[in-house]
Protein backbone atom coordinates (compact mmCIF):
# COMPACT_ATOMS: atom_id res chain seq x y z
CA UNK A 1 0.00 0.00 0.00
CA UNK A 2 2.72 2.37 0.93
CA UNK A 3 4.66 1.32 -2.12
CA UNK A 4 1.65 1.96 -4.34
CA UNK A 5 1.22 5.44 -2.82
CA UNK A 6 4.84 6.21 -3.34
CA UNK A 7 4.58 5.00 -6.91
CA UNK A 8 1.52 7.17 -7.47
CA UNK A 9 3.22 10.19 -5.96
CA UNK A 10 6.26 9.59 -8.11
CA UNK A 11 4.04 9.40 -11.18
CA UNK A 12 2.31 12.65 -10.25
CA UNK A 13 5.63 14.36 -9.75
CA UNK A 14 6.83 13.12 -13.10
CA UNK A 15 3.69 14.47 -14.75
CA UNK A 16 4.17 17.87 -13.10
CA UNK A 17 7.81 17.99 -14.13
CA UNK A 18 6.93 16.93 -17.66
CA UNK A 19 4.26 19.61 -17.91
CA UNK A 20 6.57 22.27 -16.56
CA UNK A 21 9.35 21.19 -18.87
CA UNK A 22 7.00 21.23 -21.83
CA UNK A 23 5.97 24.76 -21.00
CA UNK A 24 9.55 25.82 -20.62
CA UNK A 25 10.38 24.36 -24.02
CA UNK A 26 7.72 26.56 -25.60
CA UNK A 27 8.94 29.83 -24.07
CA UNK A 28 11.94 29.80 -21.82
CA UNK A 29 11.71 33.47 -20.96
CA UNK A 30 8.85 35.91 -21.21
CA UNK A 31 9.63 39.30 -22.68
CA UNK A 32 6.07 40.65 -22.79
CA UNK A 33 5.71 44.25 -21.72
CA UNK A 34 6.95 47.73 -22.52
CA UNK A 35 10.68 48.19 -22.16
CA UNK A 36 12.23 51.61 -21.68
CA UNK A 37 15.49 52.29 -23.43
CA UNK A 38 18.49 53.30 -21.35
CA UNK A 39 20.84 55.68 -23.09
CA UNK A 40 24.03 55.37 -21.09
CA UNK A 41 25.68 53.78 -24.09
CA UNK A 42 26.30 55.66 -27.37
CA UNK A 43 24.09 58.63 -26.46
CA UNK A 44 25.58 61.10 -29.00
CA UNK A 45 25.17 58.60 -31.78
CA UNK A 46 21.64 57.62 -30.89
CA UNK A 47 19.52 60.62 -30.02
CA UNK A 48 21.37 63.80 -31.13
CA UNK A 49 22.48 61.65 -34.06
CA UNK A 50 25.82 60.84 -35.61
CA UNK A 51 27.92 63.63 -37.00
CA UNK A 52 28.79 63.90 -40.67
CA UNK A 53 32.01 62.07 -41.43
CA UNK A 54 31.97 59.99 -38.24
CA UNK A 55 32.55 56.38 -39.20
CA UNK A 56 34.99 55.65 -36.38
CA UNK A 57 34.60 52.23 -34.84
CA UNK A 58 32.62 50.86 -37.75
CA UNK A 59 34.11 47.94 -39.71
CA UNK A 60 33.04 49.39 -43.05
CA UNK A 61 35.00 48.55 -46.19
CA UNK A 62 36.24 50.90 -48.91
CA UNK A 63 33.05 50.63 -50.96
CA UNK A 64 30.88 51.51 -47.99
CA UNK A 65 33.18 54.39 -47.08
CA UNK A 66 32.75 55.83 -50.57
CA UNK A 67 28.98 55.54 -50.28
CA UNK A 68 29.03 57.27 -46.92
CA UNK A 69 31.25 60.07 -48.21
CA UNK A 70 28.83 60.65 -51.08
CA UNK A 71 25.79 60.81 -48.82
CA UNK A 72 24.01 64.13 -48.48
CA UNK A 73 21.61 64.90 -45.65
CA UNK A 74 19.51 66.73 -48.25
CA UNK A 75 17.86 63.41 -49.07
CA UNK A 76 15.74 63.97 -45.96
CA UNK A 77 13.99 66.78 -47.83
CA UNK A 78 12.76 64.33 -50.49
CA UNK A 79 9.21 63.11 -49.86
CA UNK A 80 10.07 59.44 -50.39
CA UNK A 81 12.83 59.63 -47.79
CA UNK A 82 11.09 61.64 -45.06
CA UNK A 83 9.17 58.74 -43.53
CA UNK A 84 11.63 55.97 -44.27
CA UNK A 85 11.62 53.74 -41.22
CA UNK A 86 14.71 52.51 -39.49
CA UNK A 87 15.55 48.90 -40.34
CA UNK A 88 15.07 46.34 -37.57
CA UNK A 89 18.80 46.05 -36.90
CA UNK A 90 19.01 49.81 -36.23
CA UNK A 91 15.59 50.59 -34.75
CA UNK A 92 16.55 49.38 -31.29
CA UNK A 93 18.78 52.43 -30.87
CA UNK A 94 15.75 54.57 -30.17
CA UNK A 95 13.28 54.89 -27.37
CA UNK A 96 10.97 52.29 -25.95
CA UNK A 97 9.67 49.05 -27.33
CA UNK A 98 6.65 46.88 -26.70
CA UNK A 99 7.01 43.10 -26.85
CA UNK A 100 4.20 40.58 -26.79
CA UNK A 101 3.62 36.93 -27.51
CA UNK A 102 1.28 35.35 -30.01
CA UNK A 103 0.12 32.09 -28.49
CA UNK A 104 -2.00 29.26 -29.82
CA UNK A 105 -4.57 29.41 -27.03
CA UNK A 106 -5.52 25.74 -27.44
CA UNK A 107 -2.06 24.22 -27.32
CA UNK A 108 -0.26 27.11 -25.56
CA UNK A 109 2.45 26.83 -28.17
CA UNK A 110 4.35 30.04 -28.83
CA UNK A 111 3.77 31.04 -32.44
CA UNK A 112 5.59 34.35 -32.56
CA UNK A 113 7.06 37.19 -30.54
CA UNK A 114 6.26 40.65 -31.79
CA UNK A 115 8.12 43.87 -31.16
CA UNK A 116 6.85 47.37 -31.76
CA UNK A 117 9.42 50.13 -31.80
CA UNK A 118 8.37 53.57 -30.69
CA UNK A 119 10.68 54.90 -33.39
CA UNK A 120 8.48 54.98 -36.52
CA UNK A 121 6.02 52.60 -34.82
CA UNK A 122 7.33 49.70 -36.83
CA UNK A 123 6.27 46.20 -35.84
CA UNK A 124 8.35 43.13 -36.46
CA UNK A 125 7.57 39.47 -36.02
CA UNK A 126 9.91 36.79 -34.75
CA UNK A 127 8.47 33.45 -35.78
CA UNK A 128 8.89 30.77 -33.12
CA UNK A 129 6.96 27.95 -34.81
CA UNK A 130 9.82 26.53 -36.83
CA UNK A 131 8.73 27.84 -40.21
CA UNK A 132 11.49 28.17 -42.82
CA UNK A 133 12.75 31.44 -44.23
CA UNK A 134 11.17 32.32 -47.61
CA UNK A 135 13.03 31.87 -50.90
CA UNK A 136 15.56 34.54 -51.80
CA UNK A 137 13.25 35.97 -54.48
CA UNK A 138 10.54 36.85 -51.93
CA UNK A 139 10.02 40.47 -50.88
CA UNK A 140 12.61 42.02 -48.60
CA UNK A 141 11.44 44.51 -45.99
CA UNK A 142 12.75 46.95 -43.41
CA UNK A 143 11.98 44.49 -40.64
CA UNK A 144 13.19 41.42 -42.55
CA UNK A 145 12.09 37.86 -41.90
CA UNK A 146 13.02 36.65 -38.42
CA UNK A 147 12.96 33.27 -36.76
CA UNK A 148 13.78 32.61 -33.14
CA UNK A 149 15.07 29.77 -31.02
CA UNK A 150 15.91 29.33 -27.36
CA UNK A 151 19.46 28.98 -26.18
CA UNK A 152 18.85 28.35 -22.53
CA UNK A 153 16.83 31.39 -21.42
CA UNK A 154 18.24 33.54 -24.20
CA UNK A 155 16.19 34.21 -27.30
CA UNK A 156 18.36 33.91 -30.38
CA UNK A 157 16.93 35.49 -33.53
CA UNK A 158 18.10 35.14 -37.12
CA UNK A 159 16.93 37.72 -39.65
CA UNK A 160 17.20 37.62 -43.43
CA UNK A 161 15.26 39.33 -46.25
CA UNK A 162 16.23 42.80 -45.13
CA UNK A 163 16.02 45.65 -47.60
CA UNK A 164 19.10 47.79 -47.88
CA UNK A 165 19.39 49.85 -44.71
CA UNK A 166 22.01 51.67 -42.70
CA UNK A 167 24.37 51.02 -39.83
CA UNK A 168 24.49 54.67 -38.89
CA UNK A 169 22.18 57.37 -40.16
CA UNK A 170 24.89 59.46 -41.73
CA UNK A 171 25.21 57.43 -44.91
CA UNK A 172 26.89 54.22 -43.75
CA UNK A 173 25.08 51.48 -45.65
CA UNK A 174 24.06 47.97 -44.71
CA UNK A 175 23.33 45.86 -47.76
CA UNK A 176 20.33 43.65 -48.44
CA UNK A 177 22.62 40.63 -48.41
CA UNK A 178 23.24 40.98 -44.68
CA UNK A 179 22.23 38.42 -42.10
CA UNK A 180 21.49 39.68 -38.60
CA UNK A 181 21.75 37.57 -35.47
CA UNK A 182 20.26 38.96 -32.27
CA UNK A 183 20.19 37.81 -28.66
CA UNK A 184 17.55 38.92 -26.17
CA UNK A 185 18.64 38.31 -22.60
CA UNK A 186 16.41 39.09 -19.62
CA UNK A 187 17.89 39.71 -16.19
CA UNK A 188 14.90 40.34 -13.96
CA UNK A 189 13.53 43.70 -15.02
CA UNK A 190 16.45 44.41 -17.30
CA UNK A 191 16.78 43.41 -20.94
CA UNK A 192 19.94 43.24 -23.01
CA UNK A 193 19.47 43.16 -26.76
CA UNK A 194 22.54 42.46 -28.87
CA UNK A 195 22.70 42.84 -32.63
CA UNK A 196 25.33 41.11 -34.75
CA UNK A 197 25.39 42.18 -38.41
CA UNK A 198 27.21 40.13 -41.03
CA UNK A 199 27.33 41.95 -44.34
CA UNK A 200 29.54 40.33 -46.96
CA UNK A 201 29.25 43.34 -49.28
CA UNK A 202 29.88 46.35 -47.09
CA UNK A 203 31.68 45.23 -43.92
CA UNK A 204 35.23 44.04 -43.39
CA UNK A 205 34.18 42.25 -40.21
CA UNK A 206 30.85 41.65 -38.47
CA UNK A 207 29.39 44.62 -36.63
CA UNK A 208 28.17 44.25 -33.06
CA UNK A 209 25.85 46.57 -31.13
CA UNK A 210 24.27 46.27 -27.65
CA UNK A 211 21.23 48.05 -26.29
CA UNK A 212 19.75 47.92 -22.79
CA UNK A 213 16.24 48.38 -21.45
CA UNK A 214 14.34 48.33 -18.19
CA UNK A 215 10.79 47.10 -17.77
CA UNK A 216 8.38 50.04 -17.79
CA UNK A 217 5.87 50.34 -15.00
CA UNK A 218 3.56 52.60 -16.99
CA UNK A 219 3.59 50.30 -20.01
CA UNK A 220 2.92 52.91 -22.68
CA UNK A 221 4.61 53.98 -25.85
CA UNK A 222 3.49 56.87 -27.94
CA UNK A 223 2.18 57.14 -31.47
CA UNK A 224 4.61 58.15 -34.20
CA UNK A 225 2.73 59.63 -37.15
CA UNK A 226 4.68 60.68 -40.21
CA UNK A 227 3.42 62.26 -43.41
CA UNK A 228 5.61 63.04 -46.39
CA UNK A 229 5.33 66.47 -47.94
CA UNK A 230 6.98 68.25 -50.83
CA UNK A 231 9.38 70.74 -49.27
CA UNK A 232 11.37 71.68 -52.35
CA UNK A 233 10.42 71.47 -56.01
CA UNK A 234 13.04 69.33 -57.70
CA UNK A 235 13.46 68.13 -61.28
CA UNK A 236 12.76 64.54 -62.28
CA UNK A 237 15.80 62.33 -62.07
CA UNK A 238 17.39 64.32 -59.25
CA UNK A 239 19.00 62.80 -56.20
CA UNK A 240 21.24 64.76 -53.83
CA UNK A 241 24.74 63.44 -53.28
CA UNK A 242 28.35 64.60 -53.24
CA UNK A 243 30.71 63.86 -56.08
CA UNK A 244 33.93 62.13 -54.97
CA UNK A 245 36.26 64.58 -53.26
CA UNK A 246 33.66 67.36 -53.05
CA UNK A 247 32.09 66.72 -49.65
CA UNK A 248 33.44 69.62 -47.61
CA UNK A 249 31.70 68.48 -44.43
CA UNK A 250 33.65 65.23 -44.09
CA UNK A 251 36.42 66.83 -42.08
CA UNK A 252 34.20 68.50 -39.46
CA UNK A 253 33.90 65.59 -37.07
CA UNK A 254 37.63 64.91 -37.08
CA UNK A 255 38.49 68.60 -36.52
CA UNK A 256 35.86 69.20 -33.85
CA UNK A 257 36.99 66.20 -31.82
CA UNK A 258 40.71 66.33 -32.66
CA UNK A 259 40.63 62.87 -34.12
CA UNK A 260 42.89 61.94 -37.04
CA UNK A 261 40.84 62.02 -40.24
CA UNK A 262 41.90 58.50 -41.12
CA UNK A 263 40.52 57.21 -37.83
CA UNK A 264 37.24 59.03 -38.37
CA UNK A 265 36.85 57.19 -41.67
CA UNK A 266 36.53 53.90 -39.80
CA UNK A 267 37.42 50.39 -40.83
CA UNK A 268 37.69 47.18 -38.87
CA UNK A 269 40.93 48.13 -37.15
CA UNK A 270 39.32 51.20 -35.58
CA UNK A 271 37.11 48.92 -33.50
CA UNK A 272 39.92 47.50 -31.41
CA UNK A 273 41.79 48.87 -28.38
CA UNK A 274 45.14 48.33 -30.07
CA UNK A 275 44.22 51.04 -32.55
CA UNK A 276 44.90 53.62 -29.85
CA UNK A 277 48.62 53.02 -30.40
CA UNK A 278 48.23 53.70 -34.09
CA UNK A 279 46.23 56.87 -33.45
CA UNK A 280 49.29 58.46 -31.93
CA UNK A 281 51.20 57.94 -35.15
CA UNK A 282 48.57 59.57 -37.36
CA UNK A 283 48.66 63.24 -38.35
CA UNK A 284 46.17 65.56 -36.63
CA UNK A 285 43.13 66.60 -38.65
CA UNK A 286 43.28 69.75 -40.68
CA UNK A 287 40.43 71.71 -42.17
CA UNK A 288 42.70 72.73 -45.03
Amino acid sequence: MIDVSRAGMAGLLLAVVATATSGAASAQANFAGVWSATYAEDWPDRIPGPELGDYAGLPLNDANRMRAQSWSASILSLPHYQCRVHPSDYANSFADIRMWEEIDTDTQELIAIRIQHFAWNTVRTIWMDGRPHPPEFAEHTSMGFSTGEWVGRTLKVTTTHLKEGWLRRNGVARSDRATVTEHFIRHGNHLTWSVFVQDPLYLEEPFFRNRDYTLSETGRIGAYPCESVIEVLLPEGYFPHYLPGQNEFLIEYAVNHAIPFEAAMGGAETMYPEYVDELEQLPPPSAE
Partner: peptide, 9 residues
Protein backbone atom coordinates in the same frame (compact mmCIF):
# COMPACT_ATOMS: atom_id res chain seq x y z
CA UNK B 1 13.30 39.44 -56.14
CA UNK B 2 9.83 40.81 -55.58
CA UNK B 3 10.25 44.47 -54.67
CA UNK B 4 8.59 47.50 -53.17
CA UNK B 5 9.15 51.25 -53.30
CA UNK B 6 12.30 51.17 -51.20
CA UNK B 7 13.99 48.74 -53.59
CA UNK B 8 13.12 50.83 -56.64
CA UNK B 9 14.34 53.98 -54.91
Amino acid sequence: RLSNLGDVL
